[in-house]
Each structure stands twice: as C-alpha cells, then as structure tokens.
C-alpha cells in the first residue's frame, strides 16, 4: 500500500534517515521501535509527505505521494500526530467529526461513524464533553477516534500512521487502543505505529522495524527482531526474551 524506496532525509546538516526501504501491507500492523533520536518521527514525516526525502521516494498504491491531492489523499491516508495543539472548545463529537471532512457521506452517516469510532477508541462516554475539559489521555483517545473516523470502517487501500498513540494512556487503554488499531487492520487498512513499549509492540505488531541512528537495524516478525543482541545494540539494555506463557509472542524482561 505504502512503500518507502531508498529514502534519505536530511534535517539541517544532520542526516536523520538513511536508505530506508519498507512496505506497509494491507491488513498488517507494522511497529516502529528505536531509541530517542533514531528517526522514528522523521520516518513518519517522510511517509505522510510532511518531510520531503532528499533521495528515494514514497509511493502510495504505486503512485508517488506528491501526486496525491487534498481530499483523495485524506480518504486513503490518515495520520495521528504525537501531540495536538487544539486550543478551542470544540465538543468531542465535533473533533471526531473533523475526520469526516474529506468525505461527503452526509450528516446521518457521519454521526453513526463518529459514534462507532468513539466506541472503538473506548471514548464513547466522552460524547458531549468539551475537548478542552479532557485529560491528556482522553484527548489522545479522541484524536485516535478522529483518525479512525477518517478511514472508517477501514478498507484495503487505506493507510493509517500513528505516532506513539499510547504515550499518555493508562495500561488498560494502551491495550484498547492497540486493539482498535488491530481491528481496523483486520478490515484491510495498512497500519504503521511508532511505539516505545517493546512488549506492546511484540504483542500487537505483525512486523517490526528497529531503527538505529537513522537506519533500519532489523526488520521482520517480533520473534526475528526482538532478540537480546539487537536490543543491546540499539537501546543499550540487557534483556531476557522469553515466550509469552499464553500467547507465545516474545516477552521482553529487563535484567
């Protein structure tokens, strides 16, 4: 769906991404892991067109990203930024409803979708509240609902990029959020999610990219990528990796 081919990105004099090749596939959740400054947000910026690669290109459905215009692009590609600076007292449903802007699906259908998206983000109880009165975690879930509404119900051909969607969330909502992400992927959307929690990534991602100093250190399934040696090189931490007793995915334990 979305492909980066030999992408190099320079910010000022610093080369923040070098020779990145990756593909997002329909129905798959790709996790991006790496220490601070490894280039995770730059990668997301390059994939959504906010940053222009110095070399290489990004293709969506085989077409260069720059060729995609306005609303057509927004119907296929949704992006959840790390923080939002909204400072006006919109209601929760108005914020989520902005996700329907690129669509012309009508007020009634939009209202249904807003409700379903809020439900998926476990934020349905916030309906009717003012956005400015919400806590940081609640705001994050409302924005998640907004990008879910933008692609709702999720289909093959659409792409969702998320920058640390769980950073402000309590443990329960870290799981409900990634569960919602998995569900939209099951309906065909290709998803890329930047995460810091290795165990969340191991549990919810089909495929993981480990970024290190602007390069792809490793790519593959959680079992292939999350090895003690790779984590030692990239994060500088000593870990044990075991199989999850019930689910079988890798479980990372700091030593």
């Amino acid at each position: 769906m979305l492909q980066a081919q030999g992408v190099h990105v320079r910010r000022g004099s610093k080369q923040v991404l070098q020779a990145i090749d990756l593909s997002l596939h329909a129905g798959q959740v790709l996790g991006v892991l790496g220490p601070n400054g490894a280039g995770k947000s730059s990668l997301l910026g390059a994939l959504c067109g906010e940053l222009t690669p110095n070399q290489g290109q990004v293709l969506m459905q085989g077409l260069a990203l720059a060729q995609w215009q306005g609303a057509a692009r927004a119907r296929a590609l949704a992006v959840l930024p790390q923080v939002s600076s909204l400072d006006f007292s919109f209601s929760v449903e108005e914020v989520v409803g902005m996700g329907r802007l690129p669509h012309a699906s009508g007020v009634q259908r939009d209202a249904e979708i807003i409700e379903q998206a809020l439900y998926a983000a476990d934020a349905q109880h916030l309906l009717g509240r003012s956005y400015l009165a919400l806590s940081g975690g609640e705001r994050q879930r409302v924005h998640l609902a907004r990008v879910l509404a933008q692609l709702w119900p999720g289909a093959e051909g659409s792409v969702l990029l998320l920058d640390e969607p769980t950073s402000a969330l309590d443990p329960l909502h870290q799981h409900t959020t990634l569960q919602a992400v998995r569900e939209i992927a099951q309906r065909g959307t290709a998803v890329l999610v930047i995460l810091h929690d290795l165990n969340l990534a191991a549990r919810y991602c089909d495929c993981i990219v480990l970024l290190h100093e602007g390069r792809c250190h490793a790519t593959g399934s959680p079992q292939q990528v999350l090895t003690p040696q790779a984590l030692k090189t990239v994060f500088g931490i000593e870990v044990l990796v075991q199989a999850h007793p019930e689910r079988g995915h890798p479980l990372i334990i700091a030593r």
Binding site: G70, A71, A72, A74, R75, V79, L86, V95, L101, Q150
Partner: peptide, 20 residues
C-alpha cells in the same frame, strides 16, 4: 468554514484531512 475548523487542529493535521 470547515477547512477553518480543521486548521484549528494544527496545520499538518488540517493537511492530512485534505485541506489545502
């Protein structure tokens, strides 16, 4: 009007919602 609403989310957010 609706593009202005989206702009209040932030410039890049508005761009991702299809606003020029």
């Amino acid at each position: 009007a609706q593009a202005l609403n989206a702009l209040l989310l932030g410039e890049s957010e508005a761009r991702h919602l299809g606003v020029e």
